[in-house]
């Protein structure tokens, strides 16, 4: 069984400790929800796992099947099967979504098999269309420049399209639900379920129950002050929805210096 383990992780951003002693293990097939107040370090965690150069790890480790990935570049981490759906996807002018995804798919395939000759344009188009169908996306998005002028919800849907094409083993969805309208939320969530089918490990970062209504989490974690303070089953998310974070603040106190919520 493949697993992604985050062990005693400490991360500095601009000399400020944002992640402090974070621990979590995600096994393939499990769905974990990560919730927590604004600024508590959820996106920082996601970026750190993907290897963003701005985030400095002072101690701890991130491992896949016991092997550290901290020495790997972001693309190598992607080749290991980790995918991040960004909270704020950037746009790349002049590069079409289809072209970009084909380059990405070929790069992944080549990393896995150095003899890979690359997918044919025709085959790729078929693949892309089938994935766009799954997410009920208009085909015209394929020829548009990556995220350029996409609405908030369109960007989020395009993130999951990328996940669908790249077929990761672990997916981190950073607030994928924000920006999606009610129908889109259902379509995208069902898409994620179809893709996961019990064999992807998923970390859903969210503020609300709405996405979890479709993607039922096996575990819900509350992050506060840079680490997980509570873990539970799906009910924990419902409790947050009802009560907010007041009880967490009461229980775990005011945040240490430099961390705010």
């Amino acid at each position: 069984m493949t697993e992604l383990e985050i062990r005693n992780l400490h991360v500095l951003v601009n000399d400020k400790e944002i992640i402090r002693d974070f621990n979590l293990t995600i096994r393939q097939g499990e769905i974990h929800a990560l919730m927590g107040p604004n600024g508590t370090g959820k996106s920082t965690l996601a970026y750190t796992i993907m290897g963003h150069p701005r985030y400095q790890i002072t101690s701890g480790d991130v491992l896949i099947d016991g092997e550290s990935i901290l020495g790997l570049t972001p693309d190598e981490r992607a080749h290991k099967g980790i995918f991040l759906a960004f909270q704020y996807p950037v746009s790349i002018p002049g590069v079409s979504l289809a072209n970009f995804l084909r380059v990405a798919l070929n790069a992944r395939n080549k990393a896995v098999n150095p003899d890979d000759k690359g997918i044919s344009v025709v085959k790729f188009r078929q693949l892309l269309k089938s994935k766009m169908d799954l997410l009920k996306m208009d085909y015209q998005f394929a020829s548009r420049y990556l995220n350029e002028g996409f609405s908030g919800g369109e960007k989020k849907r395009a993130e999951i399209l990328q996940m669908a094409v790249l077929e990761p083993r672990f997916a981190i969805l950073d607030e994928t639900d924000s920006g999606l309208d009610i129908d889109a939320l259902r379509i995208v969530s069902e898409g994620v379920n179809t893709l996961a089918q019990g064999h992807i490990g998923v970390l859903v970062i969210t503020h609300y129950q709405r996405m979890l209504n479709y993607i039922t989490p096996d575990f819900v974690h509350i992050m506060y002050g840079g680490r997980i303070v509570e873990s539970g089953k799906a009910e924990l998310a419902l409790r947050l929805e009802e009560q907010g974070y007041e009880w967490i603040r009461e229980k775990y106190g005011v945040l240490p210096d430099g961390i705010h919520d």
Partner: peptide, 22 residues
């Protein structure tokens, strides 16, 4: 970084952005 997280190596990512730029 975004392109790299999709499995595109740094140099290829640079190339893609430049291609888009021009």
């Amino acid at each position: 970084f975004y392109l790299q997280t999709r499995g595109i190596p740094r140099v290829e990512a640079e190339q893609l952005i430049i291609e888009g730029f021009f």
